[in-house]
């Protein structure tokens, strides 16, 4: 538990309306992959979580969702505000909070769902360094044609790994990429190529 000299940081200022607002942004982001949203709620995130990552975690996690944390730090805060169980095995987590993508496990290490229940799969919240305008071309449901954008801070093999994961559809993980207070979603249906 927390040491007495580090009091727990607060959660969402107004949990019900804030989580509704954040969820609607997430829903829009998942429905329109690559579209960037800016967090509209002020959250003081516990290190090493980015503000958007912590706000999204509080919006979606509770006692029914096992969470895998890549780095130590936010355990007590997360447990207190969401009640979510923390797990050591990434394969058993519904949500994973990843702050060091360079050293993250392969996408296949997370729950992929089952053939008859592909929804029983993990959502990965990955912190990247920045979003840009060029470098990647996204296509798939939710995208009218193609959309271009850049993501800085992911390891070289990441998008190759992603395309392999895409090939397992309808199994697979879904991504929320976070850069500070901004975020976007990439569901398993999205194809990503460099260009």
């Amino acid at each position: 538990m927390n040491a007495p000299h580090t009091p727990l940081l607060p959660g969402l200022p107004q949990p019900a309306p804030d989580s509704q607002r954040i969820f609607r942004q997430l829903l829009d982001a998942m429905a329109q992959p690559g579209r960037i949203h800016a967090l509209q709620v002020a959250v003081t995130a516990p290190a090493p979580l980015a503000p958007a990552a912590s706000a999204i975690a509080l919006t979606l996690c509770d006692y029914e969702t096992p969470v895998w944390l890549q780095s130590a730090g936010p355990e007590a805060w997360l447990r207190f505000h969401s009640g979510c169980p923390l797990v050591d095995d990434p394969g058993t987590a519904r949500f994973a909070l990843i702050d060091q993508p360079a050293s993250m496990p392969a996408l296949a290490a997370f729950a992929q769902g089952e053939a008859e229940y592909p929804d029983r799969s993990a959502t990965l919240i990955i912190q990247v360094s920045a979003f840009g305008e060029q470098g990647l071309v996204f296509a798939g449901p939710g995208i009218d044609g193609e959309t271009r954008l850049g993501v800085a801070g992911l390891p070289d093999q990441f998008w190759r790994d992603w395309q392999q994961s895409h090939g397992r559809f309808p199994l697979g993980v879904d991504l929320v990429l976070v850069a500070g207070t901004r975020f976007l979603c990439i569901p398993r249906t999205t194809t990503v190529r460099e260009g």
């Binding site: 997430l26 998942m30 429905a31 929804d119 959502t123 879904d174 569901p187």
Partner: peptide, 8 residues
């Protein structure tokens, strides 16, 4: 709902 959107 998020999973539903991810698996149309």
């Amino acid at each position: 709902l998020l999973k539903a959107v991810a698996i149309p």
